[in-house]
Nucleic acid binder design. Structure first.
Lengths: 336, 336
DNA sequence: AAGATTCTCCAAAACGTTTTGGGAGTCAAG
DNA sequence: CTTGACTCCCAAAACGTTTTGGAGAATCTT
């Protein structure tokens, strides 16, 4: 309700003094400072955010772009992550705005709007592509940002990512150790870094074991994509006995395909993301997930450090992937 | 990069004219308007958001508060809803900021911070309680807001809600028509409007049918809460043969309880929310969901109309609840 | 030809902060 | 008495827009 001028007037002080008193500067006597603070408390004074932002040349805002394709938004914990991130940003006086991408615009347009209108101090990018134009743009503008997922950008940039390569390699080797020899991969769209990374992990393991890498099918990172890709692999003359799937959603689609095919329930399968519903599929879906707790806080911390100017190299977190042992990966190797 | 002053200087025009040209006022000649627009396009001029907000006395922001208790954030479609809402708000020049509530603060504190700092033009409230202090506060401040869920506030306020009363009444009657007589209710915390509303619906149906309303147990709106509440009902001397659960999460907990009890798999059950994982439980969980598509757009529209000053009475949407027929509600009435 | 009207444009005043660059006092030291 | 240091305060200048209230020139009316 009240602004600085009114508050100052009612106290018989100058705007300057009131402002500095509230900010705790030392050049205001302790007595006045206390008097000002009490008065401010009493009238419930809060500085006008827009005015402060204008003067300070800070937006006090961070934006996160949300891909609008339904189902592309990421696992359910995504909202928890955002919530955690926003909470930690708020402690530093920053708010998190969500910026969904309308169908008619590109993610780049959104970035441009936010950056060039000086609406944000930093950005959070999700679902990075190997070659991500948003990253290039933000780098060229010199605006701080953190990505959820790596890219193949030449310049380093801050990110948090799971080590999909290692995770999928390990999962594949696990199948190999269990006696599987025909291990298929259901891959996500390869322009996404995570999908490519996971595919590489599977491929590396296969090559290490001296196995052919032709049992690979790509699909949209959705239930339907996994379903179609699985059908494709099941049509092969020599079927896979195990499937490593890029995401849980695809794995669930693959499970549906397996149910429709003779002996499909004898095929092992593993996904990635640890979707809650995976616990209820039949068989319960073994999966993988990124380690680390309170990811949101990590993102917030990286963002704040990026804003503070820390070099990108020090703001990169690669998290190990852990295996979540349910049941779907335990089918015998020799069946099918 | 550029601001109005520089742009004006480079064109040999005044700031005023450039500003008005870009806003399309009629008092700049079509020729100059075009010239200005081209120049602005070329240098990629975007008005500084903070400056505009200060001058216009609008924050161009809407905040949504997220309860921080994990699991309380609502069904997975919640993020889709937010995303849709943000998208439609963006079309009107408003951005959506998410405001999670840290453990040490109340939702009211958050509202206060946003409202008194003039950080937002409106607020979106979720998980309303029957007596909701946030609603009272916002009403007293006269700031526009829309709630997801009704309240028992005396003054009307804009909301979108599902007709839980009718939905739960209908579901209960459906069980009655199928021959069930001992129909239990697993209720959510009654301080929440939705939980109370659904409970009333069950109770009304029971009374209409002349049945006792003692088979009711309350729990936290989580899997564990449903599990414990179900165990409580199953301990009764005469067990329910059907369960109407306030939420799917609770229903899934109840399913776990049923599995642990002899003959539990003969008990019918229905939930509410249409969680994706409900399709994978065994048996697949019959459920209910609010009708209406693109809820986010509806919220955005109500928010905009509230900001425009439309009276609250015209900004209330009560959506019907539809039944989602899977399998879990089809157990015979005479078993158990 | 004088007055009214219309077209274009602009100077200056906001909006509410934060920050710069002092300006009065007071006190102690030189 | 002067000087310097220190304490406490303040006027004024930003920050970049939008909007108000004209001003000057051209065109139309009478």
């Amino acid at each position: 309700m009240a602004n600085l001028k009114q508050l100052a007037q009612s106290l018989g002080l100058s705007i300057t003094t009131v402002s500095r008193a509230l900010d705790g500067y030392a050049d205001v006597s302790a007595a006045t400072r206390e008097r000002v603070r009490e008065a401010a408390d009493k009238v419930g004074y809060r500085p006008n955010a827009s005015a402060r932002r204008l003067r300070r040349q800070r937006a006090e805002l961070v934006a996160v772009t949300l891909p609008s394709d339904p189902g592309h938004i990421g696992p359910p914990h995504f909202l928890d992550m955002l919530s955690g991130c926003a909470e930690h940003l708020a402690a530093a006086g920053l708010n998190l705005v969500i910026a969904p991408v309308p169908r008619c615009e590109s993610e780049l347009d959104i970035c441009r709007r936010f950056v060039d209108g000086r609406r944000v101090d930093a950005m959070l990018l999700v679902r990075t592509k190997r070659k991500d134009e948003r990253v290039e743009f933000l780098q060229s503008r010199g605006i701080p940002f953190v990505t959820n997922g790596r890219t193949e950008s030449l310049l380093p940039h801050p990110y948090i990512d799971g080590d999909g390569f290692a995770g999928f390699r390990a999962a594949t080797l696990r199948f190999h150790a269990a006696g599987h020899r025909r291990i298929g991969h259901i891959a996500g769209p390869q322009e996404y870094y995570f999908a490519h990374d996971r595919c590489r992990g599977w491929r590396a393991a296969m090559e290490e074991c001296g196995l052919a890498t032709d049992l690979c099918a790509e699909g949209a990172p959705l239930e339907q994509g996994g379903y179609l890709a699985a059908l494709e692999l099941l049509r092969q003359p020599s079927r896979p006995t195990a499937l490593v799937c890029a995401t849980d959603e695809m794995a669930i689609g693959a499970l549906r395909a397996l149910r429709e095919v003779d002996g499909g329930n004898q095929i092992s399968i593993v996904g990635h993301d640890d979707l809650p519903m995976g616990a209820f599929t039949s068989p319960p879906l073994s999966t993988m997930r990124m380690t680390g707790e309170n990811l949101g806080a990590s993102f917030a911390s990286l963002l704040l450090r990026a804003i503070a100017g820390e070099p990108a190299e020090e703001l990169q977190e690669l998290h190990a992937i852990e295996f979540v042992d349910r049941d779907s990966h335990r089918r015998p190797a020799k069946a099918a």
